[in-house]
């Protein structure tokens, strides 16, 4: 077993080189490099955490924006509907007024027309009476040779016509 049989001759060399080389490893690798690798890893973890936090904040902001937009839209929709309702009511009122006015005018024209018709009828009746009286006087003169006064003939015709 060389570990034991060579012990006396080699222990000092082994210990010396072990200390030298492990010391170099400790200072170069252990103290020089390992902490910086750890640092890199921690920097990355922090960056990821910060990015996640930023993303979360952005999401919250977007949600708030969306909510605000939604309320705004609802409000505007309400306003628009109120506006439409007001316009409808106004239009209805105006139509009513115009209809009322138009109706009144029509009635007036109808009444006027009726009045004209009545007048025309009255005129026509008067005409008929006159014609009938003339005709009656004429007939009486021709048939009986009687001369009937125009007023008497008219009164007689009136009696017959109006019963």
């Amino acid at each position: 077993m060389p570990q034991i049989s060579q012990l006396a001759a080699t222990y000092s060399s082994q210990v010396f080189w072990m200390l030298v080389i492990f010391g170099a490893v400790f200072f170069l690798v252990g103290r020089g490099m390992a902490p910086r690798v750890i640092e890199t890893m921690e920097g990355r973890d922090q960056k990821i955490a910060a990015d996640l936090a930023a993303a979360e904040a952005a999401r919250r902001a977007a949600d708030a924006e969306d909510e605000a937009w939604r309320t705004q839209a609802n409000k505007q929709r309400g306003e628009a509907q109120a506006l439409i309702a007001a316009a409808k009511a106004e239009a209805a009122k105006a139509a009513e007024v115009r209809l009322g006015a138009a109706g009144g005018e029509a009635e007036a024209r109808v009444a006027e027309a009726e009045a004209r018709i009545a007048a025309a009828r009255d005129g026509a009746l008067a005409e008929i009476e006159t014609v009938a009286a003339d005709a009656a006087a004429d007939i009486a003169a021709r048939v009986a040779g009687l001369t009937v006064a125009a007023d008497a003939a008219r009164a007689a015709v009136k009696d017959v016509l109006h019963g």
Binding site: A9, T10, S12, S13, Q14, F16, W17, M18, I21, F22, A24, V25, L28, V29, M33, A34, R36, V37, T40
Partner: peptide, 29 residues
Amino acid sequence: FNVAFTNSALWMLISAVVLYAFMLGGMKR
């Protein structure tokens, strides 16, 4: 005290150098 550079010391050195080279890959950061 004898401090001959032996095959043992050589392989300690090789281990250290290989380890150093390995760690260099981690220093790109």
